[in-house]
Write a protein that binds this DNA or RNA. Structure first.
Lengths: 144, 144
DNA sequence: AAAAATTAAATTGTGTACAATTTAATTATA
DNA sequence: TATAATTAAATTGTACACAATTTAATTTTT
């Protein structure tokens, strides 16, 4: 009956926890001249080395409206290259520069450094992780 | 050892789930000319009727830089009033207009309507809820 | 092959989100 | 009680985030 109470919403703690955690990244990532979203792009590139904007957007659930200006900034910082695909000129291929590659080693402690402020035990982390991916999957499958 | 893989981050599904869920609110809240954040303000006001910006910010974990322009928009829509507190003129008191109060009834189905796309059972929802508030609490307690 | 449809980025416009600073009011202190 | 310190909003500047549209390239259809 009290569906409209803030404390009865699942959306709010999800939204708040996400924001608070992202804030925790700021002082850590500032050292590397990265914002949180830019860091996510780096995570993908450290795995894949090269990816087009569309695929990157699918991985990060972000669209070109967000990624285009962000990738231009990252290019101007010297972390990534932006090159049109010769085979299909609609595709823009993003890849790491040497500086971008070298940043991986320097960032190796970021996950642990930020992760510890979550203060969850292994089991809790796994449960939370599973439920979040379940939610993401369920939302994607909902036609509504 | 693969701490820097996107799929090994807890932050990413948290960030993605939050965004995806907020997107689900859009078509539902559009009918009431509310954005997601504006809806959160309404949830607080439907409980409290009257609150100053600072307290509202504490409830929603938002600062005046976010709330000031947002509340001005909500005032111009006719949903809230903004009045300086006579006792302490540094305080701006936000309260509901009649239109804002009446909106509560119309929004009563919003939580269920959006909630069903999460597709979690009662137990899962409770666990997720608890873990999220635990994370929020832990992050707040971390000095780092 | 030319026209239509599709696709991928970019662009435009609106709305947060937040750090840092400023302004104005109140409280505490010398 | 003047001055200093504190407090609450507002302001400024930067950075997403996304819906909707546009542009340009490619593919499909006729």
């Amino acid at each position: 009956m009290n569906d409209l109470k803030l404390e009865n919403q699942l959306c709010f703690p999800l939204y708040a926890a996400s924001k608070e955690l992202i804030k925790k990244y700021k002082p850590v990532l500032d050292k590397f001249d990265l914002t949180y979203t830019q860091y996510l792009v780096m995570l993908v590139l450290w795995e894949d080395n090269s990816i087009n904007v569309k695929t990157l957007g699918e991985r990060l659930m972000l669209d070109s409206g967000t990624l285009t200006p962000l990738l231009k900034k990252m290019e101007s910082k010297g972390y990534v290259k932006r090159e049109v695909n010769d085979k299909d000129e609609r595709n823009l291929v993003i890849s790491l520069t040497e500086v971008g590659k070298n940043l991986k080693g320097k960032c190796s402690s970021v996950p642990k450094e930020v992760g510890k402020c979550l203060n969850l035990n292994e089991n809790e982390a796994i449960i939370l992780y599973s439920l979040l991916y379940k939610v993401i999957g369920n939302i994607k499958d909902t036609s509504m």
